[in-house]
Amino acid sequence: MFTILNKESLAPQVDSIIIEAPYIAKHAKAGNFVVLRINEKGERIPLTIADSSKTEGTITLLFQKTGKTTEELGMLKPGNIIRDIAGPLGHDTPMHDYGHCVLVGGGIGSATLFPILKALKDRNNRVTTILGARTRELIIWENRFKEVTDELLLTTDDGSSGRKGLVTEVLKEVIETGDVKLVIAVGPVRMMQAVSELTKPFGVKTLVSLNPVMVEGTGMCGACRVNVGGKTRFACVEGPEFDGHEVDFQGLIDRLGFYREEEARALEAFRKKKCKGKCKSA
């Protein structure tokens, strides 16, 4: 049983919650995630540990309300209980004195990048962060990043904040002007793919954090398998970060769509039940 201590709305459809989980908080490192199940009938979903405090014994999770489980999670309030949380899971992001690193985030990808940024800065790396979104209000944790990163560059599709355009355009300029040693991209699959394709000819090491469907999250079921460098790898125990130049992104996209029908059905049933048939379908 895990108690929600705090909840915040960060953007339309994006919430963050702070949860009491002292053992997980004590061991959480950049790159790690948890698997949670809200209640007895719930599914197990993976969520990145976006922040943690050893002293407070808490972890912070960020989520976009795109399906039944995240929508239900978004309805919980401080004081409510999440039945199961297991973690921290997944490999830690490898930390070295890289030199100049560039973090590229799309939407909710900020959640994964923030602890990585902090860990990179703890090792005195120079870090440029590029955050992109459709529009200004969808850029997550701008201020938090500003406090820690050496340089923060924003892009929006509509030009409401930062540069109008895609993160890859800005990334290209950064790579061309500086001696970039490492790029870490987290966000929509197509964005991570575009970043990896961009950096490949420059020979810049690129890590992407993958988000396949998971069930138990500890390497036992193989639901989260992805093809990396021609080999089947389990994202939960061998990832979730992989070399972006080796990932079969199309395969990942195909597998991510496998349960789309069921996901829609579950969400619809949930909304109907939630408003007991009184409200219009969303």
Binding site: K41, G42, E43, R44, K68, T69, V215, E216, M220, C221, G222, A223, R225, V226, N227, T232, G251, D254, R255, G257, F258, E262, R265, A266, A269
Partner: peptide
């Protein structure tokens, strides 16, 4: 890695542990 190729462990875990045979009463 095609869709609808399962490892038995995943297939059975979905049904036995997560009760996927009772979807959508159970979420999995």
């Amino acid at each position: 890695n095609l869709n609808n190729v399962y490892f038995a462990s995943e297939f059975l875990t979905r049904v036995n542990l997560m009760k996927a045979d009772q979807f959508p009463v159970y979420d999995t």
